[in-house]
Structure formats: structure tokens, C-alpha cells
């Protein structure tokens, strides 16, 4: 346990040095609050951008706050997921390239402690970025649209965090399989993207797919309750996350022969 904490501290310090603690939260906050702001100013934006004929009247109904927040979540699902993968792609590959990994592993550090410290470090940053951004977006939505109930906000936050944790676990697992950072990002994005396409195409057979978590989080925001099969999705996602971690540890142990 002491080794794990030391490794985690080193990981967090490292991320302070390379600026991840700054850019990930700020990028997320920008993506988050852009959504309510652009929705709020949509009539003006259309008016100034389009070459609309004189006298065109555009009536856009003001969406309820929950819809705006759900749209923000869908932004996080695309751009946000990409950012998380890009942030986590280099955690193992960079240390391997710079030979820092050798220096760490000659000490009595087990493979699991190493992987777990990397995983926890990435998840801490990602979740803090998500909390800050989601909170700020919530504030804006309440300001500009009708307020959203905070219980719905909180439960959608929990469901969505599970998705983020899954995403990072997949990236860490790929990080133990491949050597180049760009390859790791590409494979992770393709894996998760492929899973998402498959579960959209064959939705009947893939009710368990972790990619459905995003739909579940949006459903909580809009209706205040989960879709059906929510328990299956939550359980499979947790199981897959743990599986990813275990596989990553096993793979890492075989990969690093010291």
C-alpha cells in the first residue's frame, strides 16, 4: 500500500509538471459551458450567420434545462472521450520510451501496483475535470434555462463517471499492449467507437454494452429514471473495467522482463 501511494504521488506530480491538471479541466469546462451558451444565443447566431431572406421568422422553442445538460453530455461523449483517451494514451508508453520505467521497476514494485497507480492517477484527473465542468455547466443551465433538479444531476454524474472509468481502463490496457502513444490512442478510440457502433446497430443483443451508459445518463436527466437493463449495463461495465485492469497487469508483467 505504501508503495502504491508513493507511486500515485509521483504520478500526480508528473501530471502537474506536464500541465495535464490545467488543460484537461479547462478544456472540459470550455466544452461544457459552450453548450448552454450557444443554445441560449442560437436565434442571434442564426440571424447573423445565415443569408436568410428578409423577414424570415425563426421560432426556436426554449429547450428545458435537462435537455441542454443532456446535449452537454453528448458533447462529452464525442469530443470529451477523445480528450480523455489522448490524455491517458502516453502514461505507460512515455515512461517506457524514456527508460524511466526501468528505474521504477528495478525497485520492489509489483506490476499491479504500477498499473493501479497509473489508473488511479488518470481517473482522478478525469473525474475532477468532469466534476468542475459539469458543475459549471449546471450553474449556467440554471441561470439561462429552467433549473434542473440536483438529484438528477448527481445520479447522471455517477452513471457517466462509470463510462469515463471504463474508457480510461481500456486506454490503460491498450497502453500495455502497444508501444507508440499514437497507436494506443487509435486502437482505444477504434475499440470504443466500434463497440458503440455495434451496440447501436444491434441494440437488441447489446443491452449490456458499456456505451449504453451515456444514453442511461441522459435518460436520468430527462425523465429522472434509468432505462431498462440499467443494472446489467452497470454490472458489465464494472466487470469489464476490472477485467481490463487485470489483463493490463498480466500483460505488463510479461512485457517487462527485468
Amino acid at each position: 500500500m505504501r508503495t502504491f501511494i508513493t507511486l500515485l504521488q509521483k504520478e500526480l506530480m508528473e501530471n502537474f509538471r506536464n500541465g495535464k491538471w490545467i488543460w484537461l479541466p479547462i478544456a472540459f469546462m470550455i466544452i461544457g459551458i459552450s453548450q448552454p451558451i450557444t443554445t441560449y444565443y442560437m436565434p442571434q447566431i442564426l440571424e447573423s450567420a445565415g443569408n436568410l431572406p428578409e423577414g424570415t421568422v425563426i421560432e426556436i422553442p426554449t429547450p428545458p434545462g435537462s435537455e441542454v445538460l443532456a446535449a452537454t453530455l453528448s458533447q462529452f461523449g464525442t469530443v470529451g472521450s477523445l480528450l480523455f483517451v489522448l490524455a491517458a494514451m502516453g502514461v505507460i508508453a512515455n515512461e517506457r520510451q524514456s527508460r524511466a520505467l526501468t528505474l521504477v521497476m528495478v525497485r520492489p514494485v509489483s506490476a499491479f501496483q504500477y498499473i493501479a497507480s497509473k489508473w488511479t492517477g488518470q481517473i482522478l484527473i478525469a473525474l475532477i475535470a468532469f466534476v468542475l465542468s459539469y458543475g459549471l455547466t449546471f450553474y449556467y443551465t440554471n441561470l439561462l434555462f429552467e433549473p434542473v433538479r440536483w438529484e438528477f444531476l448527481f445520479s447522471s454524474f455517477l452513471i457517466y463517471s462509470l463510462w469515463i472509468i471504463f474508457l480510461i481502463s481500456v486506454t490503460i490496457l491498450t497502453g500495455t499492449l502497444l508501444k507508440s502513444a499514437s497507436g494506443i490512442a487509435a486502437v482505444s478510440v477504434l475499440t470504443v467507437g466500434g463497440l458503440s457502433v455495434i451496440s447501436n446497430l444491434f441494440s437488441k443483443f447489446t443491452a449490456w454494452s458499456p456505451t449504453n451508459l451515456r444514453a442511461h445518463a441522459a435518460a436520468i436527466l430527462m425523465n429522472g429514471k434509468l432505462l431498462e437493463n440499467s443494472l446489467t449495463v452497470i454490472l458489465t461495465t464494472s466487470a469489464l473495467t476490472i477485467l481490463c485492469l487485470l489483463l493490463a497487469t498480466m500483460r505488463f508483467r510479461r512485457f517487462e522482463q527485468y
Binding site: W23, I26, I30, I37, L143
Partner: peptide
Amino acid sequence: AIVTPLLILQAIL
């Protein structure tokens, strides 16, 4: 008051 925080965040980044 609505748009300034967005600009500040961009500037910090």
C-alpha cells in the same frame, strides 16, 4: 456577464 467566463477560460488555457 455570460460570455466573459468562456473568454477567461480560453485565455488561461
